[in-house]
Design a protein around this nucleic acid. Sequence first.
DNA 1: ACCATAGGCAAGTCACCGCTTGCCTATCAA
DNA 2: TTGATAGGCAAGCGGTGACTTGCCTATGGT
Lengths: 97, 97
Amino acid sequence: MEGDLFKALADPTRRVILDELTARDGQSLFEICARLATRHGLALSRQAVSQHLAVLESAGLVTARREGRYKFHDLDPRPLEHIVTRWLTPAPPEETP
Amino acid sequence: MEGDLFKALADPTRRVILDELTARDGQSLFEICARLATRHGLALSRQAVSQHLAVLESAGLVTARREGRYKFHDLDPRPLEHIVTRWLTPAPPEETP
DNA sequence: ACCATAGGCAAGTCACCGCTTGCCTATCAA
DNA sequence: TTGATAGGCAAGCGGTGACTTGCCTATGGT
């Protein structure tokens, strides 16, 4: 979906996760948990971060690859490009929500 | 605030309002209501649109100017540029929410 | 002066979202 | 094989946000 992109960006914690993946790509769930706590003071449970990653993944902003018992997450900023172009050109009609 | 920008974009109705202002700048509240109904099938109350415009205004995406008993709304897409650049450069640290 | 129009303010309802808790599966090391 | 690690699933709770309803102010036409 298109609207999932904006929903994914709406939460500040998810934006920090994107920051963290920008600084260091290919982190696992526990790595992200640890770095959120140490570098941003965000003491979130593992499931909270997991759910955030699921939202980012369904928005196309994060791709996940499994290796053994680890699951590494990579950032994909390409969907962001649609945001700016949308309201600079004569707007194309959207899905009626 | 910074986070208000993402909160403003989170709602699909507000995105349609931005589309509508992109197509025709300087509309009043009632004009926006009418065009949402006729062109997008969105039958919203006047207050609903008014509240949406307030959110867009506090996000810096819409500027309002009063003339007599009318209040015209103009689009300002400049805050959108920060979105893309944020996750393409080595991310600057954010406000801890 | 009167009334219709354009807009604002405040409270209340309802649904969604973020987060937790508890339990379950899978992979690797000893 | 046993235990520890990495992750997933599902139900439940609390808060926030979108929308409505009702009433109020202000401007403009006649």
